[in-house]
Write a protein that binds this DNA or RNA. Structure first.
Lengths: 216, 216
DNA sequence: AACGTACGTTACTTGCGGTAACTACAGTCT
DNA sequence: AGACTGTAGTTACCGCAAGTAACGTACGTT
């Protein structure tokens, strides 16, 4: 009975298929933005809907698989920027710039990841489950950055907790500023990067009140 | 011909009706979260769908009207915190705390505002329209905070531009950290507020590298 | 009395997520 | 060889929500 070798072959074939499907989905998302429908994706892959559902369960599953690919890729780029041999501030700037360059290069994918039209919340749960399914990309980035900060920066007591908070906060800052910048393009990328780094570097605390104003 | 007085009466009646509809929508959103359907909202208001469409055009219109109400209310609370007679840091902490208390008190509304299941993007525009319809609440908060910073803080040349960037960045930080905190509840609200204020106050720049690590 | 207009309804279309039931073909067991 | 099992694939359907068309009705204007 050669079941094991056979099973192995079939499993790897299934994985190849899965990658093909993901690439097709990617193309459609690139083309249609976040309104990409399961039908359209299946058509692009040359098959029909039920197969997608066999592979990914539901739309949320396909979304998660797609998101994981892009998030992994983005995350490795960010890690590289964060690990470059340079001063802390330069590395922070490089990381911001890497993120912004990425969302600038593939806005459709970015939009799909950030604003999934729907998520997997079939139960009309009435409780406080807010955000459980919300943008996993941001969550993951925040969590990862929190870890990095916790292991590299000395924040004294309560280190880990504060590092997580900062991770999510910094990622959120980057995201919101990037989202706004991408749609309005009010300045160059470099300028945006510099301003955000300045913010993180405490210029808000150092800046004086404006003459005549009530202060801030 | 008494058309003007008549028209006036009818207009004000329509506005009253509109407010009633918005309040009904509010109740449904409170109850059902972001999955509230137009049918459900109409039923709650004691009427049927087409009337909603006559008043608000489409779901996006209803969403915008609802969002405006809550955003206005939140914004005035935030302004109050920002205008209190105290030192800058205390005011920033009060503002953060006000925001977090608001999302903590009404998570369903918050979720509806932040994660609208869909928006009004009928055109299959393929260009770079990313984020044009994305979370208006955050945009508006960022824009307002940017104005406040620009008029109160002295940032030297490029004041206005940098103030806008900071406005969106700070709002994004607050939002992402709040979203994460609301779902995981890893610490008290006060602690979160303190940590975020510390971040804004430049503790990232001041902190030393951790012993043994590659620095940050 | 006839008319326009705003309010309201029922009943429909369209489109999407998701599923059930069936077909075709590979390799395996007796 | 021929029955057995499982997997990729199909068509055809369900349920549901957004949005619309056509129709009815009350009321102030002329």
């Amino acid at each position: 009975m050669e079941t094991t070798r056979q099973a192995e072959r079939q499993r790897s074939a299934a994985e190849r298929r899965r990658r093909e499907l993901l690439e097709a989905a990617d193309r459609v998302v690139l083309r249609d933005g976040p309104k990409a429908s399961m039908n359209a994706i299946a058509a692009e892959a040359g098959i029909t809907k039920p197969i997608l559902y066999r592979h990914f369960g539901d739309k949320g599953g396909l979304y998660r698989a797609l998101a994981k690919r892009h998030t992994d890729s983005l995350l490795s780029a960010l890690r590289a920027a964060l690990d470059a041999p340079a001063q802390r501030r330069e590395r922070v700037e490089a990381t911001l710039d890497t993120y912004l360059a990425a969302i600038e290069a593939r806005p459709q994918v970015y939009r799909f990841l950030m604003h999934p039209s729907d998520d997997a919340a079939p139960a009309p749960e009435q409780g406080f489950d807010v955000g459980r399914h919300s943008a996993p990309l941001l969550r993951r980035l925040g969590e990862e950055l929190g870890k990095v900060i916790a292991e590299r920066v000395d924040l004294g007591p309560g280190n880990e907790q504060m590092a997580r908070i900062w991770g999510h906060g910094i990622v959120g800052m980057m995201h919101a500023a990037g989202d706004w910048w991408l749609s309005d393009r009010p300045c160059s990328r470099a300028q945006l990067v510099r301003s955000l780094a300045d913010l993180l570097w405490g210029r808000l605390a150092e800046a004086g009140d404006r003459p005549g104003g009530p202060g801030f």
